[in-house]
Computed example of a mutant assay.
Amino acid sequence: MEHHRKLVYSNRMPIRWGDQDAMGHVNNTVYFRYMEQARIEWLESFGFGTSWTQTEGPVIVNASCTFLIPFTYPGIIDCRMFCGAPGRSSVPTWYEMRLVGDDRLFAEGAAKLVWINPSTGKSIPLPEAMRVSCL
């Protein structure tokens, strides 16, 4: 069964020299930072900041990444974010990471985002604008 997947955001980020590890390629943990940056910029496009003084916001309940081709310095990463069919309080997201100028898929990832009230820790309905953008 084909899952609903809609491109909702794309950004470009430089690979920093310090993103590499002793093996000479971008460390696996940094790929999660690349996905996080795309996700944060997408959330900011709805007017949601990153401060926990807000009355609502996202948490990630799981995240994964499949490393296909190693990134190395220098380069610019094109990270594309997709979302799936939203639930009441959650939405699945997927990420594709390529090197600008290279059509090959270097890495792909996923994260499930849950909308919560930080003071209670309980899930609450997704904001309507976010829900609509994912449909």
Rank of each mutant, 00 (worst) to 15 (best):
M13Y: 04
W42Q: 04
P70R: 05
N117K: 13
A110N: 12
I124C: 05
G57M: 11
V30P: 07
I116T: 06
E41V: 01
N28F: 07
P14R: 11
N27Q: 09
V100E: 15
R16M: 05
N27S: 13
I15D: 05
R16Q: 12
K122E: 12
N28E: 12
I60G: 05
E128S: 10
V132I: 14
P86Q: 10
A110F: 04
G109M: 08
E44A: 09
H3V: 07
V61Q: 11
D19W: 09
I60A: 13
D102P: 06
D21R: 09
E44G: 02
N27M: 10
K112F: 00
F71T: 00
S45D: 14
T29R: 07
E128Y: 08
A38K: 04
S119Y: 13
G121K: 08
Q20N: 08
E128P: 01
R104D: 14
M97C: 12
E108F: 04
C65H: 03
L99C: 09
I76D: 14
N27T: 12
H3D: 11
I15N: 03
Y95P: 02
S119H: 14
V132A: 13
F106V: 01
L105W: 07
M1T: 11
L113R: 00
N117S: 13
W17A: 03
A38F: 07
V26G: 07
H3E: 15
L43Y: 13
M13N: 01
T50M: 15
R98E: 01
E96L: 02
E128Q: 14
D78R: 14
R12W: 08
S123W: 08
C134F: 10
R131P: 02
T55S: 15
Y31I: 00
L68K: 15
T53A: 12
E56F: 12
W115Q: 05
V8L: 11
I15M: 05
T66E: 15
P86E: 10
M13G: 00
D102K: 08
Y95H: 14
P74N: 09
E2M: 12
F48L: 15
M130V: 14
M81N: 01
Q54W: 10
L7C: 04
G101D: 12
H25A: 07
V114P: 05
P127D: 08
V59M: 14
R98D: 00
P70M: 09
V59G: 06
D21C: 09
A63H: 03
G24W: 08
N27I: 07
G101W: 09
G121D: 09
P74Y: 11
A22H: 10
R131G: 00
Q54H: 12
R39T: 11
V26F: 06
